[in-house]
Design a protein around this nucleic acid. Structure first.
Lengths: 344, 344
DNA sequence: CCAAGTTGGGAAAACGTTTCCAAAAAGGAG
DNA sequence: CTCCTTTTTGGAAACGTTTTCCCAACTTGG
């Protein structure tokens, strides 16, 4: 493929001039510029980004370190991250690390070796080797959807307390007095914050935390299933359930149906994320929506600022959730015994 | 960061020797090797992959050009592609092109500039600019889940005819005689092949193609919705429906429920893909499963062979689908009229 | 008309590797 | 001990850019 020297030769100028024209750096006369562009066009020249990166230290590459790209949550986030990065001229190296710490470490090393300018971590775990790698300390990064306890890491995430409040308020307004909650892993800060918002709101409404059945889930369908089994062994409908993501809500509702409980008739369920499947699920799932696009956009913006070495005022930011009411929530059954047999 | 020269200096050898030790090329004595590894360890040296790629033309980078990473289908495929690539020491640049031809073109150019060694295309469209870019003709690529009409492109995909046959056979065996089908876009070869398998099987069972209600979908939930509306205006239950992917099946079933038809009581539905959501949907969806892992693995293997310049016998290969029977299919209602009024 | 500034552009070094070639060291045979 | 072969090593060029430094040729102003 044609190199910058070929262009220079054809245009009758030096390589430095071609570089200047391309990068619009330094002074060049209108006529040389024209000659250069003509030559570039004629040779279909495209700069070699390896060489450019090597010389200028600007690779325009970011690492995307994601736990599981085949999860609706991360896939969605990844989409918006990609979009935001593309807009700013960055490319993404996809690193799907799963539960494998060795793979995570491998990838972190490789990203360093590839001279990525920054790394974006959707929901990295506390056990992440992130901070173990010496060279990594030098490279800018942003964490999405996650609070890291250890240190002041730049983060963009949902206002999780608000999310818990939103769910609780909605269910209270419908008249519920009995509650359950399937959380995410309790070691994840996100889960604790959501629970905090949920419980304090209930407490303020006069419902003591001890009366709320709380079981720990895993953010996966199966966690929702198991969670619901456990809840039903402690609590009899009608009651209201808050699942900390939609996947678990799907699993939980499935179990409820298998046991012949009606949703929302016997059990009202609120999810979280606003997965596209919510609409098509039956019943369509009421959920606390995350604005993925905002999170991704803010995350990339923040990362770019860190890369450019700009001083940033707020290294951590939250975005507000909003409630999407569908048909998995309704007033509790007792209060409308008259209607009990007419619906459906 | 430490460079190869620093290592050389510390180990008291030349840079070339260090390179030889790292890459295990050429002869080096046991003792120098030891010295070199010690120095590498001491300095925490990691080769700069930009420089290596520039010099050796081996970047160990692949492009992943995907229509929409936030679709369960592609997310799943991407996961397995990533896994297969990682196993072989390749990294992936994530290119999410959506419906935007300009973005596709942009990305193809960028991939060339970044000197990727190959590109993997899950389900590229016929309108793709893939073959318009002059330099691209030189770079190896593999297409997944798609037949390109134009030319003999290396492809790994499902045996779509077999998929259609599988769906038809299953429904016939249950005793169905009235059929409908929501296809993918008809301009996509995949859709036509699936339909072919489906229809010929029905024909062989004595059901003329004219009696099968066929509507065109888009592989999305909403296409399933609209498709079902159209079908129900032409055909009254009971009948059996084959949707060419799970998403459309979800949408179709949703509409059926809204109109108070029972699945599988009134309408049996078969999907395709075996999305994890199938299990949790109600009713759990019977579906023709794609072995994503196989497709991805074969695709990457093929791509690597092309990259290494090996002669490959079969440039195109198919993998076999298999049926997963859940609860969205059942014998048609007529045969059990007694139950007709007991439901709900 | 000359000194001082301004503008445009070229030469060369540098980025960090790999790889070719030749030189040095080591080993073996006579 | 010498000569030849083989193994191990170092030097230097090359990959394709960007960037620093410098010089030539104009402009400009006094």
């Amino acid at each position: 493929m044609a190199s910058i020297k070929d262009v220079a030769r054809l245009a009758g100028v030096s390589a430095s001039t071609v570089s200047r024209v391309i990068n619009k750096r330094g002074k060049t006369s209108k006529e040389t510029e024209e000659k250069v562009w003509k030559a570039i066009e004629a040779l279909q020249y495209r700069p070699n980004l390896l060489a450019r990166g090597l010389r200028s230290q600007k690779t325009k590459l970011l690492g995307l370190l994601v736990p599981d790209i085949d999860s609706p949550f991360f896939a969605r986030l990844a989409k918006y991250i990609e979009e935001a990065a593309y807009q700013r001229g960055y490319n993404l190296i996809l690193c799907n690390v799963g539960e494998d710490p060795k793979k995570e470490k491998d990838y972190l090393e490789v990203l360093i070796q590839r001279k990525v300018e920054g790394i974006i971590f959707p929901r990295v775990s506390d056990e992440s080797l992130l901070f173990r790698i010496p060279h990594l300390s030098r490279i800018p990064y942003v964490i999405l959807d996650r609070t890291l306890e250890k240190e002041e890491a730049p983060t963009v995430k949902l206002d999780n307390i608000a999310a818990g409040i939103l769910a609780a308020t909605h269910l209270l307004k419908l008249g519920h007095r009995k509650f359950a909650c399937i959380t995410g892993p309790q070691k994840i800060g996100v889960s604790r914050e959501r629970l905090e918002g949920f419980l304090t709101t209930l407490t303020q409404a006069g419902i003591p935390p001890e009366d709320v059945v709380i079981v720990e889930g895993d953010f996966r369908i199966d966690g929702g299933r198991k969670g619901m089994e456990k809840i039903l062994s402690h609590l009899s409908p009608p009651f209201a359930l808050f699942c900390m993501n939609d996947m678990m809500a799907f699993g939980a509702i499935q179990v409820a149906k298998e046991k012949n409980w009606q949703v929302p008739g016997d059990i009202s369920v609120v999810g979280l994320d606003n997965n596209p499947l919510c609409e098509v699920f039956s019943p369509p799932l009421t959920t606390v929506a995350q604005p993925f696009d905002q999170i991704a956009k803010l995350g990339i913006t923040l990362l770019c600022k860190l890369i450019e070495g700009k001083r940033v005022r707020k290294r951590s930011m939250t975005v507000s959730p909003y409630l999407v009411i569908r048909q998995s929530t309704a007033p509790p059954r007792e209060q409308q015994t008259g209607e009990q047999f007419t619906r459906e």
